[in-house]
Design a protein around this nucleic acid. Sequence first.
DNA 1: ATCGGAAATGTTAGCGCTCACACTCGATCC
DNA 2: GGATCGAGTGTGAGCGCTAACATTTCCGAT
Lengths: 337, 337
Amino acid sequence: MDVHAARSPAMTDVARLAGVSHQTVSRVLNDHPNVREQTRLRVRAAIAELGYRPNRAARALVTGRSQLIGIVAQNSTLYGPASLLAAFEQAAAEAGFAVSVGSVGRLDRESIAGAVERHLDQRVAGLVVIAPVKSADDALEGMPAGVPLVTIDGDPQRSHTLVTVDQSAGARAATRHLLAAGHRTVWHISGPPEWYDAAWRIEGWRAALHEAGAEVPPLVNADWSAASGYDAGRMLARMPEVTAVFAANDHQALGLLRAFSEHDRRVPHDVSVVGFDDVPEAAFFIPPLTTVRPSFDAVAQAGLDLLLAQIADPATPPNRVVIAPSLVERASVAPPA
Amino acid sequence: MDVHAARSPAMTDVARLAGVSHQTVSRVLNDHPNVREQTRLRVRAAIAELGYRPNRAARALVTGRSQLIGIVAQNSTLYGPASLLAAFEQAAAEAGFAVSVGSVGRLDRESIAGAVERHLDQRVAGLVVIAPVKSADDALEGMPAGVPLVTIDGDPQRSHTLVTVDQSAGARAATRHLLAAGHRTVWHISGPPEWYDAAWRIEGWRAALHEAGAEVPPLVNADWSAASGYDAGRMLARMPEVTAVFAANDHQALGLLRAFSEHDRRVPHDVSVVGFDDVPEAAFFIPPLTTVRPSFDAVAQAGLDLLLAQIADPATPPNRVVIAPSLVERASVAPPA
DNA sequence: ATCGGAAATGTTAGCGCTCACACTCGATCC
DNA sequence: GGATCGAGTGTGAGCGCTAACATTTCCGAT
């Protein structure tokens, strides 16, 4: 079959057709200055005529750098990571980079290290790691320096470049909002405490409570799932004094809403609820959910910018960007009965 | 682990250390037969000692094929595509392939073609396109043959290899289930009709109605969003004769549920609802949603297998795999009042 | 005219790997 | 005992590109 299917044209083919040397073609391709306009046009025409497509592997081989960015995320269909990934790819494509994903089943040291290794094999130009737990950061510690790295939602204490959402501020806003509506105090269903996101949301919630002089109720631990929110809700629904709950994410809030509904605790009449994430469906929960919206697009854009800066100049000092979330008010909050 | 390597070691460095030629190192790396066990061990030791990592770009350059597969999907924050992507990456990593994503904002010809082009630039070994609308298939039509291609949820009429979920069967199952509960007929809120998924779900719904001799109510058009389901619900809630609704996906169903709740139409007492997708939250809707579950893992695995077969032997004839979805019964269906 | 130097273009040498082939050497065969 | 084989290994070429340097062309200043 390869008999008539000639191999795809190479730079020399273009050069021959345009009547120049392959180096001139290379210069046109890379937007080098010293090329006469007329020559440039001729080369462009030859490229178009042949349908020439530069071979990235060859370029990567000689430059030692690919136009590939690796992104490591936990293998999950969680809304946050998925949004981040999509936003990232979009932004990277605009900058001429391709994105290679390496999802990991778990966020332990081995999984992360393995995914990073696989990307290093690909000679990625830079690496983005969504590292919301300590073990992920740890795995990165032993990594060969030299490849630009940005972590998302990682430990702010670490020295490398990172982008985080200001979880604490978001949690404070949510808690204050509930307090401002007249609630004596606010309960919190947390995410898994080894997640930085979860830890900071707890911290923000506590801070807002202290600052208002409100009692700090016992923390209700959960994971990120709707199921765990439901379980938590089945407990909280039995306590008449619970009139305001801040859930660590929208899915938990959904479970919570259902538990309350089953126990005839009306939201927001009897209990007010605030979530976190602003998933697209949150506006259609019963009732529509007041929640905290982190801007995933902003996170992705900031992360990419930071990474590209490092790729362009590896000597760029570590940097840190914090994205402020905003509160989206809907119908799940009301004054206590 | 020392780190002072000026540049990362190449094959010749390993060869020198092991006292063999670079070609022997290559053979060890590629599991070629004719290497003495003792030599193999020596080479392996040298590789480990140097922390040698083969340069994929160089390999890709000479073989003309990368160990990269590209995947093109729309807005991967939707549950379906996100699940697919994650499952795919997992399966691909096990097969030694990396996955490069190209999400596109819209599914029009240009966007798809652009994403495909970008992947071709990377010299991907194969391409997976989630192409649920006609324009996506069209864009693929003009593609240079020669690169293995699998489409997901594409047009079954096309000649290339594809994997689809049996949307029609899922829709029939949902509709029959509602009919079996005693409803006179079943209304349907559809997805955008240019999506094959949506079209086949409509088809399955109609077929089940005909086959039961039930009246076919007017089709309610919507997009995939919860908002559109809500809008549809505000209409349906006003018609007392509507006792059973099959929504084209779970998000629509969520919007529907809320609209019914606002109009004091109780689900399932007054109206029964069935969705499609089985998003993880569906079990926590109010009430828990009966829905149709396509197995995204199965789709991803089948897609990858088909693609790898084509990569291994480009002469593999086009193939077609259909994945049967299953009905998940929960609490949103009951006999009519 | 003559020259200098910038602008434009060409030439050469690899990047790190695999492929095709050549070679060595002991075992096997007639 | 030489020819033959095949397992194990080495050699050289070259994939398509960019970097560095070499060369030619052009043009204004002398």
